[in-house]
Design a protein around this nucleic acid. Structure first.
Lengths: 83, 83, 83, 83
DNA sequence: ACGTTTGCGCTTTAGC
DNA sequence: GCTAAAGCGCAAACGT
């Protein structure tokens, strides 16, 4: 299975990894549910759900996107007539 | 924007939602990194990374679904003469 | 396997689907190689490979992105101070 | 931009590359749609869509790799007591 | 050559 | 239930 560890307990070692990942994925699922709840709450208060999601996306992407724009050689975009 | 809340502070309310979601997404990102680390650790100990991920997937599946999936895959592969 | 078709030839039917998809994936692989070649050619002519890829991306995304911007309620973005 | 080519027409050269890649990506998109259609057709005839995709992946794999994957998955699942 | 990082394709989930 | 989008996993591509 793996050269892993002493004593031929590779199965137990594998199980350890799997259980740790499983636990993290459970946590992640909880977070996803929390996000869902917040969106639902926003909707209940009169906001548009999908629009809120997009707004979050923009909010998080702002810096990233700006970096991306900077990363791209302006010269290239100018050559393509995109700016 | 929304009929939301007293005082015409809908903008502030929206911002609250967005920031809460943002924070949760940041947490989720951290968890994903943790998972990645565990897989890397498993790999370093002689396990096959992608196979460990597949194993986790099966582990998290309900027994019924898991058995069903194994059965259908066997059938299809046999039909193709691959096993 | 499937209720598929007359004569209990479900295996043959499945094989047909698989082979058709296989062929398309082979085609796709060829296209990916072609793209790779063009980037390599650009590099050989003094252009920066990753930057060219990003430029392509921008080139293709221009319209799409504009639509996305329109789709997002300006009011929301304004509330977040993003515009 | 690049030392590229005679006459300082580097912009035109770049645009050539970008348009060629763009065209290939458009083709690729078409192929992806075709694949999707075939899977949908299989599904409509009683096959399990995701399972068909998995079967295609195995089909395209070299025999050696395929056998190896089946073996390692079996081992891991057994180690976890899932089979 | 290897490790890191980006991009692509698939899967799953949310919205209608 | 179907269509559309986002998240996740994988693989290729760049830099060291």
């Amino acid at each position: 299975m793996a050269d892993g560890e002493v004593g031929g307990n590779a199965a137990a070692v594998l199980k350890g990894y799997v259980e740790r990942v499983d636990r993290l994925m459970e946590e992640r699922k909880g977070i996803n549910d929390d996000i869902k709840d917040i969106i639902a709450e926003a909707k209940a208060n009169g906001f548009n759900g999908p629009a809120v999601r997009r707004a979050v996306r923009m909010y998080r992407m702002e810096k990233e996107k700006r970096d991306e724009m900077i990363a791209i050689d302006d010269t290239y975009l100018a050559a393509l007539g995109l700016i």
